[in-house]
Design a protein around this nucleic acid. Sequence first.
DNA 1: CGGGATCCACCGCGATACTG
DNA 2: CAGTATCGCGGTGGATCCCG
Lengths: 129, 129
Amino acid sequence: MTLAPDPYAALCPSRQVLDRVGDRWTILIMRSLAGGPRRFTELAREIEGISQKMLTQTLRGLERDGLITRTVTPTVPVRVDYELTDLGRSLGEPIAALERWAVDHMGEVLDARDRYDGRETEIPGRQPR
Amino acid sequence: MTLAPDPYAALCPSRQVLDRVGDRWTILIMRSLAGGPRRFTELAREIEGISQKMLTQTLRGLERDGLITRTVTPTVPVRVDYELTDLGRSLGEPIAALERWAVDHMGEVLDARDRYDGRETEIPGRQPR
DNA sequence: CGGGATCCACCGCGATACTG
DNA sequence: CAGTATCGCGGTGGATCCCG
């Protein structure tokens, strides 16, 4: 920690992508934008539960990574549109693959969890019968 | 926030998968285990930078989700082997897709970042030339 | 060897208030 | 409308000690 602040950042590219994709809001925002350009308030409305701070922050990160564009129309009041870039759209494929896995296997995961949690909360001397 | 502690957990299955896959260590552990069963200390050695607490914690989570098995051999000292389940292995595919995207497009992302950061730190009156 | 328990520092994020 | 600025809390993870 004294030498390198984050030794993993430079290690694998997948780590960097996962840091983007893995956070709570990126996927939801990109899914919204997959339906076409969106204004700031539209995104805030479509993505239930997001704070305006996190929306701004995540959008900045996505723009920085070249996954979306931010277009300001200097009317009064100002209008800002966000839109996926080709790069952003290309990321949609692997994400979709992950979502397909989730949908296909979520049942098994949930079952596994039930089994695991059930085992843990058993009273040791008690027979399950 | 007063009604539901986490309204997103129940919303989409992809969210749950991403919470697993997205954290710092899951991918690294599963990649290690893709090479065959591993003991606790082997994992700790292969995955540089992980604390023993996070290794334990992440392994528990993976076991709970049915992605890995934990086998205890009651020798002295005890021996514990971790191994991917079929379910765990099946998750390898979508993850590999994501990693392929990362490798293929990391250059573009990095370029985009440089451009973005460059713009922001420009002195307004100064011409870039 | 393979953990569990505890303590603590950090900071991510929400809430709130203000602005062009 | 689309943000920025500030404050404060809670949870995450590292460090350390202990145990079967």
